[in-house]
């Protein structure tokens, strides 16, 4: 089952099978600077109370297959946060 959650300003979504991939769960929990992702026994869990703290850094978008993790700006018509440009690009 995919993991997702919405705050007042930010929504995060993680598709299957990424959401139940233990390595991805561990990585997401580790990269997010404001603890929006938790590693729940090898599954991704979204920590709803932290969603609006998202600083739009895009680090989570680099985890897992392209497009499997999405951050939506609810205050901007649900616009998707884009993956940061590759270094040197």
């Amino acid at each position: 089952m995919a993991a997702s959650g919405s705050g007042m300003f930010i929504r995060c979504e993680v598709d299957e099978p990424a959401a139940s991939d233990a390595a991805i769960a561990k990585q997401l929990a580790s990269v997010c600077p404001v603890d929006i992702y938790a590693d729940d026994s090898g599954r991704v869990r979204i920590v709803d109370s932290n969603l609006d703290e998202c600083i739009l850094c895009g680090l989570c978008l680099e985890v897992g297959p392209a497009g499997a993790v999405r951050v939506l700006k609810l205050y901007d018509g649900g616009r998707l946060l884009e993956r940061p440009a590759a270094a040197g690009a």
């Binding site: 007042m8 300003f9 609006d52 703290e53 600083i55 739009l56 205050y75």
Partner: peptide
């Protein structure tokens, strides 16, 4: 300080 973060905070 980030403007968007404060904006979220006060609006919320």
């Amino acid at each position: 300080t980030r403007v968007d973060i404060v904006a979220r905070g006060v609006v919320k």
